[in-house]
Simulated assay, not measured.
Amino acid sequence: MAGLDLTGRVALVTGAARGLGAGAAQALAAAGARVMIADVAKDVGEQTAAGIEGAAFAELDVTDDAQWESVVAHTVSELGGLDVVVNNAGIEVTSLIADAEPDAHRAMFDVNLLGTLLGTKHAFRAMRPGGAAGNGGAVINVASVAADIAFPAIAGYSATKSGVDRLTRVAAMESGKLGYGVRVNCIHPGLVPTDMGVKLAVETSGLGLFESPDAAVGAVVELTPSGRLADVSDIADGIVFLASDQSRFVNGVGLQVDGGMGM
């Protein structure tokens, strides 16, 4: 994002092999940060890292506490610190409430909520005074416009993203009270036509909620004052802003980057 300088900073982005996470990693690097691409998708993640100057890759299951500890330590050692953590990894289960499968939803809750909690935990431990990095920093959690609207067939997903918003605000308060020097914010993206966004359009139409995937997308656009879907760059620029000194007094907020859909 033009005008925002992250030179000398180190960022770790989860779910960064593809989609929004990859876009965020690229934008952070373009602003000058050294970036650790963290993802369960090793082959794709390594390819993404290879395409970003100065980036590295670490395999990470965000639901695994021990892996978080190892990856954060590796990031500090490999890239020389840790200043920004973007908890982006997430999955989406499309389901009517009457047909909800417990196992699929438990897996989603673990990735979207527990994964974000663990990412914030290990960011705090590394960034706080006396930590491996120890210079404070910024945590950016990726929520969703789904936390702000009632859209059919994503009750579980909406609940996890609402939880990410609440977790963010409590984390910001804890960091402030305990003198960690870490700002914690979340971003609420609008619908982006990544693999996950396309999957949602296909599956909601498959449930009979819309006549076709195009009709599902049209319904989203109709609800959006800006009159279009979000681009990856729209969201990535918001993440860079929240990581930068230009947002130095922005803390504990949910930044809506959704074209007005969730207002």
Rank of each mutant, 00 (worst) to 15 (best):
A73R: 12
V253P: 04
D195S: 12
D5F: 13
A243K: 10
F109Q: 10
G90M: 07
V257P: 11
R228G: 01
A11Q: 06
D5I: 06
A2G: 00
L117Y: 14
A215G: 03
V184N: 04
V145P: 02
V221I: 15
V71P: 05
L191N: 15
S70R: 15
F109N: 14
L118C: 10
A138Q: 05
P152H: 05
A11D: 03
D64Q: 12
R166P: 06
A171N: 05
V111S: 07
D103K: 13
V182G: 02
V240F: 14
A16K: 00
A66E: 06
T94N: 10
M263A: 12
T204S: 05
G206I: 03
A56G: 14
G130F: 12
L207S: 07
L20W: 05
T204W: 04
E174R: 08
G81Y: 02
V198Y: 10
G131F: 15
T14S: 14
A58P: 06
L96D: 01
L200T: 07
E78K: 11
A146P: 00
S144M: 00
R106D: 11
A27S: 00
A155E: 01
G206Y: 02
G19L: 12
H188K: 02
V85G: 10
A219I: 07
D165K: 03
T75D: 14
D165H: 12
V111W: 11
S244L: 13
I154S: 01
E53W: 11
G259I: 04
V145F: 13
G136R: 07
G254K: 03
N141P: 08
K42Y: 15
D245I: 00
A22G: 00
D258Y: 06
G227N: 03
D64R: 13
